[in-house]
Amino acid sequence: MTDILTTPPAAAVAAPSNRLPIKALLGLFLAGFISILTECLPAGLLPEMSRTLGTSVSLTGQTVTLYALATALGAIPLARATATWQRKHVLQLALAVVAVMNVLTALSSDYTLTMVLRFVAGLGTGLIWPLLGGYAARLAPEGRQGRAIAIALAGTPIGLALGIPLGTLLSSVGGWELAFYAAAAVTALSMAWVLVAVPNLPGRPVESRFTISQVLVIPGLRPILFALTTYMVAHNLLYTYITDLLAQVGMGSQTGWVLFTFGVTSVLSVLVVGAHIDRHLRRLTVSSTVVFGAAALVLGAVSGVPALVYVAVAAWGFAFGSSPSLFIGAVINATREAADVAQSITITVFSGSIAVGSFLGGLLIAGLGTASLTWAALALLIASAATVIGGRKHTFPPNG
């Protein structure tokens, strides 16, 4: 992935030395971690939450759907509305919203109120995600913006990898409410870190050279967004309802260990892929879609064998862990000067895919049963892999 970020804003506030500002980037990493943790935390808590809220598991799963929908709807307008604000002020405001909503969610026993709180929290995340890439690039020295962005975005897969299993563990100790209180506490600690370690960069007027319609016709972007959509919908079909999938094959008591396996291999993926992404973006993305598809096939065909479930989940985690960096890297390469606008669109698509996956999963469980999730995910991953493999000219070029 050569020239991962060549847009002028990336170098506008270059660091004074050639060293990456690790402490500042860690603050952005934590913001991304909190965002995805809060979004998907109910995935490991659905049975307990549904009992408290007096709803079915599929309806409780819509707490993930609505959160992601709010993020998708809010990403572009909120980014534009706060474009001239000091960057750290925006980040701190968004984190404060997420922290307060997590506390109130833990206190709520009413389904409608919980859904409202999740929507507002999703708007907070809608402020965070479009901010991270550009903030990281402006903090980095010239020529190292790509690695800085990768560090900032690593909070997303690691939030999925470690945060949700830990939340599940906490719920087994003190109920699902404890998991949300813990998420709020981690958010507060992240705000303290950002306050101390992250420079407060000035905002900028929204870039007017490119409209959304102009960016969407850039060669290669729409196939990337399609591949990202099918990939993320497939992931959320399975991940949001992982507790149901495991209960169906008699492994409900092992949910924590299965999620831990997913987490370990996701983190391993970030480490391994991060070392090679600059030179082998296409190969890595093809491998990610194919390996994930194979894992879905195993989960659907031989899910009655616990050892194979663990192997499939491990492969799924390794495939998924680095996927945000792969797809966002492809978007940056394809759009170049319009990368800022393209990344806002990508965040909207990313969050919208989480919402669609959670919503579609609930419909599939209600209509066709839990087993249908793996086959629907496999069909989507075949479409994603075919798009990536076929995109040799603009989408995922061999030298990308």
Rank of each mutant, 00 (worst) to 15 (best):
T230G: 13
A275G: 06
V302M: 11
N236K: 06
H276P: 04
A301T: 15
T240K: 05
S266C: 14
Y239M: 04
L237V: 03
T230R: 05
G220W: 03
T243L: 13
V298K: 04
V291T: 15
T230E: 08
N236G: 04
R222L: 03
L299F: 07
V249G: 02
T240E: 05
L221I: 11
V264F: 13
V273S: 07
G263F: 00
S253E: 15
L281G: 08
L245C: 12
G220V: 09
I277A: 07
L281K: 07
L297C: 02
L221M: 13
S253T: 15
S266K: 12
T230Q: 13
A275K: 13
T289R: 00
A227N: 13
Q248G: 01
L271N: 04
D244H: 11
S303P: 12
F260C: 07
V270P: 01
T255S: 12
L268P: 06
S253G: 15
Y241R: 04
V270Q: 05
V267D: 11
T240H: 05
V291E: 09
Q254R: 08
L237E: 02
G274C: 01
W257G: 02
A275R: 15
L281V: 07
V302Y: 05
G274A: 00
H280T: 09
L284T: 07
H235F: 13
L225Q: 07
G250P: 05
L237M: 01
H280V: 07
I242C: 11
H235P: 12
V233L: 14
T265F: 14
S253A: 15
F226L: 15
S303I: 10
F226M: 14
Q254S: 08
L271T: 00
G250T: 06
A296I: 08
L281Q: 10
L237A: 02
V273N: 06
G263W: 00
A296E: 03
V298R: 03
L299N: 02
T255N: 13
V291N: 09
F262I: 14
L225D: 08
L225M: 10
H280R: 14
T230D: 10
T243P: 11
V290P: 00
I242L: 15
I224K: 14
